[in-house]
Computed example of a mutant assay.
Amino acid sequence: MGVTFIGCGAAAPETVVLNDALAQVVDTSDEWISSRTGIRQRHISHDRESLAGLAAQAAQQALNMAGMVATDVDMIILATSSSEDLFGTACQIQAQLGATRAVAFDLTAACSGFVFGVVTASQFIRSGVYRNILVIGADLLSRWVDWNDRNTCVLFGDGAGAVLLQGNPNLDRLLGFEINSDGTQNRCLNLAFKPELRELLPGITLTQGKYQYITMNGKEVYRFAINRVPDAIDKVIHQANLTSADIDWLILHQANQRIMDAVAERLQIAPEKVVSNVAKYGNTSAASIPIALNEAVRAGKIQAGDTIATSGFGAGLSWGAAIFQWGN
C-alpha cells in the first residue's frame, strides 16, 4: 500500500504582533530580530482560542481540499508540545470534527513532530491497517516563553497545519524518510518540569510542581541544525534514488531564515526553491512545515507531482527528513 498526500490546511490566531511592538516589552528592535532570524511578525493566541480549535480548523480545510468528510478519517495524529491537557488534545479535535470513526492520539517531538507524525502515519497506511490519516502539527508556544528573555520570546508564534494522507495500492508518493534523536544535547533546548517537594504523610514525600519557560542555547541549536539537517536530507535523497537537482521544493522547519539558507546552500538547492514564511509566522514548532506547505499549495506554487524535501529539527534534540510528492 502506497502513501499519497491529498489535502492540506492551516490556521493561525487573529492577533498579530510585529517586531516593533515587542520593542515595548523587551530590549529589542525590528532590525535586531529580522537581521538575525528573518522574523518580522508572529501570531499570538488569546484566551478565546484553543489548540484544539485551531487544529480542527486546519484539519477541516485539508478534508475540504480532498473532497472528504470527517467520518472518512481513520486516524488523527496530533504533533504538539503545548497540549492544553497533558492527557492529550487529539481526542478533542476528533470530537470537534465529528470524526467518529477515527482513533486519535498526541505525538510529542517538538519542532520535528510533523515529520515524525508523517512517518508514523505512513506505517499504519503501508501495513494496510488504516487508509485515511490526518497528521496535524499545532503549537501555542507563546504560552511557554519568558517574555522578559529577548533571545527566545522574539522567535515563537502560534498556529496549526494539517495534511491528509491516504493509502493507494497503485501509487506511493512517500519516497523516503529518516528520523533521529540525540538526547545528549537535550539541555540545549527544553521546556523543563521544576519539581517541588511536598510531604504527604510523615515519612512520605511526593514531587509536585510546574513547567518552566522555554530555555535555549541558540548557538548550539544553530550549529546542530546546519550540520545534522543537510546530512539527513542528503541521505533521504539518495534513498529515493534522486539528486538535489530533482528536488522541486525545500520546506524546512521555519526556525530561522539563516538556518534555511545555510541548509539550502549545503544541499546546492537554489534559493527560489526554498519555501519560507518565517517572516509572517515566526517559529510555530510542529505547525511550521504544514503551514508553509499549505500556503505554497494554495498559492499554486506547489503542483501535483512536485517533489518536496522537508526536514523538522529541534528539541530532544531530534531531527527528521522526508521526501514526498504532492497529490494523488
Results as ranks from 00 to 15, higher is better:
residue 244 S to V: 06
residue 295 E to M: 12
residue 229 V to F: 06
residue 128 G to M: 08
residue 279 A to S: 12
residue 180 N to S: 12
residue 175 L to C: 14
residue 176 G to Q: 12
residue 77 I to E: 02
residue 226 I to V: 15
residue 6 I to T: 07
residue 232 A to G: 05
residue 326 W to R: 09
residue 312 G to D: 02
residue 19 N to W: 09
residue 90 A to Y: 09
residue 98 G to C: 08
residue 98 G to T: 09
residue 38 G to T: 14
residue 70 A to S: 15
residue 254 Q to P: 11
residue 72 D to H: 13
residue 182 D to L: 12
residue 240 A to G: 11
residue 269 I to W: 08
residue 121 A to R: 01
residue 192 A to M: 12
residue 183 G to R: 09
residue 185 Q to N: 08
residue 301 K to L: 14
residue 308 I to R: 05
residue 54 L to D: 00
residue 49 E to C: 01
residue 153 C to F: 12
residue 299 A to S: 13
residue 176 G to W: 10
residue 109 A to E: 02
residue 182 D to C: 12
residue 169 P to F: 08
residue 149 D to F: 06
residue 10 A to C: 14
residue 55 A to H: 01
residue 225 A to V: 07
residue 234 D to A: 13
residue 147 W to F: 11
residue 61 Q to C: 04
residue 13 P to V: 00
residue 183 G to N: 10
residue 276 S to P: 04
residue 129 V to Q: 14
residue 259 I to C: 01
residue 75 M to T: 12
residue 3 V to Q: 05
residue 25 V to D: 00
residue 182 D to V: 05
residue 326 W to M: 03
residue 207 T to Y: 12
residue 86 L to P: 07
residue 220 E to A: 15
residue 24 Q to G: 08
residue 104 A to W: 08
residue 192 A to F: 06
residue 17 V to D: 02
residue 19 N to T: 04
residue 24 Q to A: 13
residue 280 K to N: 10
residue 231 D to I: 08
residue 324 F to G: 02
residue 328 N to F: 01
residue 129 V to D: 15
residue 229 V to E: 05
residue 295 E to Y: 09
residue 233 I to T: 04
residue 155 L to I: 13
residue 124 F to P: 03
residue 231 D to K: 15
residue 245 A to N: 14
residue 97 L to R: 01
residue 112 S to R: 03
residue 170 N to P: 00
residue 72 D to C: 02
residue 280 K to T: 03
residue 250 L to Q: 07
residue 327 G to Q: 06
